[in-house]
Design a protein around this nucleic acid. Structure first.
Lengths: 139, 139
DNA sequence: CTGAATCCCCGAGGATACTG
DNA sequence: CAGTATCCTCGGGGATTCAG
C-alpha cells in the first residue's frame, strides 16, 4: 500500500504512455488481480501439493472448463509461477509444477484457504443473521 | 483442501436440495470468491488501517464506482467483516470499520499485498521473457 | 491425452441521474 | 454526504468442435 493510503495508481514513474500502449496502470493491482482470480487460486492450492498432470488438474478443480484450465495455466506459466513439462509420448503427457516463487505464493494462498475454513461458520451465521434482519425491515 | 486433493464440492453433508433452493455448492468456494473479489481485497486493505468514511473509501480506492463501493461494503457487512455506523447529522456521516474477524482477514490480505510487492519485479520480468520467446516462436 | 479455435450468452460492473 | 435506481456495454468464461 502507498503511504497516503491510496491503493491504486500510485505515482506512475515516468514512462510517457505512447499511443497504442497499455495505459499506465498500477502493477500491484495487476498482481492482485492475478491472485484474486478464482481459478488461479484453486490451481495454486492444488499444485502446492506437488506436480500434477493436465487431466489430474481438471479432475481436482471440479467445474473448471478445458478452456479456463488451459488459459489459467498459461497465465501462471507466463508469470513464472508454474513450469510446464511436455513428455512427447503416446499418449502425450504434460506436467505442471510450481516454481520456487510459485511455492511462496501457494503458501499465501494456503493461508487464505485455512482462514476460510476457520471462519466459514462465522460467515455463514453472519449472513443468516443479516438476511433475517433484512427480511424483518422489509416486512 | 479436502484430503483427496479435490477442492470443490466436498462431500456435501446431507441437506437434500429442495427444488428452488440454492444448489449444494462448496462453502469454501463461496468464501474464496469473496476473498478473490478485487474490490473486497482493496477495501479490506484500506480498512485495515482503521475506520473510514464512505467518501474516504471512495477516494482511497481509486477507480471504484459508487455502485460497486456500496455493493461491496454491503456484502462485507453481511459477512460480518465490517460494521456500518450511521451518524444522522447534516450532512449525514457513515463510518465503516472492520470487525474482529474482519481484522484477521485483513491481515491475510495484507500478507498477500506484501507478497505482490515483493515479487512484482520477478513477475514483470517473467512476463517479458515469456512474451519475448513467444514472439520468437511466432516469427 | 492435451490442447486450439469458435461461437455465444449472461451478468458483473461502469455511467448517469435522482433522492433523503 | 451517502446512497438508490436504471440503463447499457463489454468481456469473462462455458459449451462445443476440431487437431496433433
Amino acid at each position: 500500500m502507498t503511504k497516503d493510503g491510496t491503493l491504486t495508481r500510485p505515482a506512475h514513474t515516468g514512462v510517457p504512455a505512447l499511443p497504442g500502449e497499455a495505459p499506465p496502470t498500477c502493477e500491484l493491482r495487476e498482481v492482485l488481480d492475478r491472485v484474486g482470480d478464482k481459478w488461479s487460486v484453486l490451481l495454486m492450492a492444488v499444485l502446492g501439493d506437488g506436480p500434477r498432470r493436465y487431466s489430474e488438474l481438471r479432475r481436482a478443480v471440479d467445474g473448471i472448463s478445458q478452456r479456463m484450465l488451459t488459459l489459467t495455466l498459461r497465465s501462471l506459466e507466463r508469470d513464472g509461477l508454474v513450469v510446464r513439462t511436455v513428455t512427447p509420448s503416446t499418449p502425450p503427457r504434460v506436467d505442471y509444477e510450481l516454481t520456487e516463487v510459485g511455492h511462496t505464493l501457494s503458501r499465501e494462498v494456503g493461508a487464505l484457504i485455512r482462514w476460510s475454513e476457520a471462519h466459514r461458520e462465522y460467515i455463514s451465521a453472519a449472513r443468516r443473521s443479516y438476511d433475517a434482519e433484512e427480511a424483518v425491515r422489509e416486512g
